[in-house]
Design a binder for these strands. Structure first.
Length: 400
DNA sequence: ATTTGACCTG
DNA sequence: CAGGTCAAAT
């Protein structure tokens, strides 16, 4: 609520930051950006997906998807139509286009990895915002339905007689006791496995307890498999999927520190985002939009100051109670979740002053009069607090 | 040929 | 904010 004295020390930087004669138009990478010289900042981070070849990750995801698809498909083929109905209902609403068409060459990520025939991958990268949530919901629903379905079928299983349930060692093993064993082949034929199963199955409803051990084991295995598959599907959907509102919010806060983030910096500060062309461009675009608003405000304010009779640029300092601050804070920090750093106010003040000088000197007659200002400002990016890098979303750590 | 930024528009 | 365009830089 109550802010520390907002008065800025009117940094002498204003004088020591003259528009130097930069040879190249492009902004030279700030020293901060390349702190790791040859190595990228994110080399330190525990995110293999960023360092590994893209195809590796894609295959991984594709494997997951394929697995889930298989399971879901199996569910649809089951005697119960319940799943089928909900699954279809999703495709019909928005896109009349055949789902087949989606497998065409990626329309946006043009030349990412050389391969990506993705079974369901191409649609995942699209920004059908709500679609993802629908899918998630669908998956959860399907899981629940399948579980109910299984339980419902259990009693009718292999003629569950109280005896068969007890004499699980009898030679009368059901045909699919074998299948059960095969199914969990991955878990191996551990000696004590049987006991484990029994212990787990015992926690199940009464009906289930009456089933032969083989059946119970199968059910349990199925359940486990399904749970794992759905869980993975949810993860993959939640992640690939693109940027969410949380990311946008974080980006806005980051703008307080950096007006011109490089793509590598963005990658370093959004570990939970899988960057591809689309995502990267979108984020770059965000900052471009941020800048646009920022510069518009600055120019407007500068002209206002001139109209108000301000004579010296040095008199223009953005305080935390100024109108300009209010507008900026509203735009990048709606709700005051975050305390705007002083460094931002300094840069903003300098920007304002630059605009003031330029307009005062009548430079604005030149079509490209803003360019020099941009050049100056682009060199004033600050370091972004580590917290922004570590946490996926500044949901909580925002308070301070 | 690709990326990035400004600018304009909806 | 996302789209698209244009220019500049890689």
């Amino acid at each position: 609520m109550d802010r520390s004295a907002g008065l800025l020390p009117a940094p002498s930087r204003a004088g020591s930051q003259p528009a130097e004669p930069c040879v190249e138009g492009r902004r030279s990478p700030s020293p901060r950006e390349q702190g790791g010289d040859t190595s990228f900042p994110w080399n330190q981070g525990p995110n293999p997906s960023l360092t590994d070849p893209d195809w590796f990750w894609d295959e991984h995801i594709q494997a997951k998807r394929a697995r889930v698809e298989t399971i879901i498909r199996g569910m649809c083929l089951s005697p119960s139509p319940l799943v089928l109905g909900s699954a279809r209902a999703r495709d019909s609403p928005g896109c009349p286009e055949k789902a087949r068409e989606r497998k065409r060459k990626q329309d946006l990520p043009m030349q990412q990895p050389p391969l990506k025939p993705g079974p369901a991958g191409s649609q995942g990268s699209r920004k059908g915002g709500p679609r993802v949530r629908e899918q998630l919901h669908l998956l959860k629903q399907q899981l629940r339905q399948l579980q109910a379905h299984i339980l419902q079928m259990e009693p009718r299983g292999p003629a569950p007689s109280p005896r068969s349930a007890e004499q699980r060692d009898s030679c009368g093993r059901q045909p699919w006791a074998m299948d059960s064993g095969r199914l969990q082949g991955s878990s191996g034929d551990l000696p004590g496995l049987e006991e484990h199963r029994v212990a787990e199955v015992d926690r199940q409803p009464e009906e289930a307890r009456l089933l032969p051990s083989g059946t119970r084991a199968l059910l349990e295995t199925l359940r486990r498999e399904l749970r794992g598959a759905v869980s993975q599907a949810v993860d993959s959907v939640l992640q690939k999927e693109g940027l969410n509102p949380g990311h946008l919010k974080k980006a806005k806060l980051m703008f307080f520190f950096t007006r011109y983030p490089s793509s590598s910096l963005l990658k370093a500060y959004f570990p939970d985002v899988q960057f591809n062309r689309c995502i990267t461009s979108q984020m770059i675009k965000w900052f471009s939009n941020f800048r646009e608003f920022y510069y518009i405000q600055m120019e407007k304010s500068a002209r206002q100051a001139i109209a108000d009779g301000v004579t010296s640029a040095k008199m223009l300092v953005i305080l935390r109670d100024s109108e300009l601050f209010r507008a900026l804070n509203m735009h990048y920090n709606k709700g005051n979740d975050f305390e705007v750093p002083d460094c931002f106010l300094e840069v903003a003040s300098l920007t304002l002053q630059e605009f003031f000088r330029a307009v005062s000197a009548g430079k604005d007659s030149d079509p490209s009069w803003k360019k020099p200002i941009y050049k100056v400002i682009s060199k004033l990016d600050s370091d972004i607090p580590e917290i922004f890098k570590s946490s996926s979303y500044p949901q909580e750590l925002l308070q301070n």
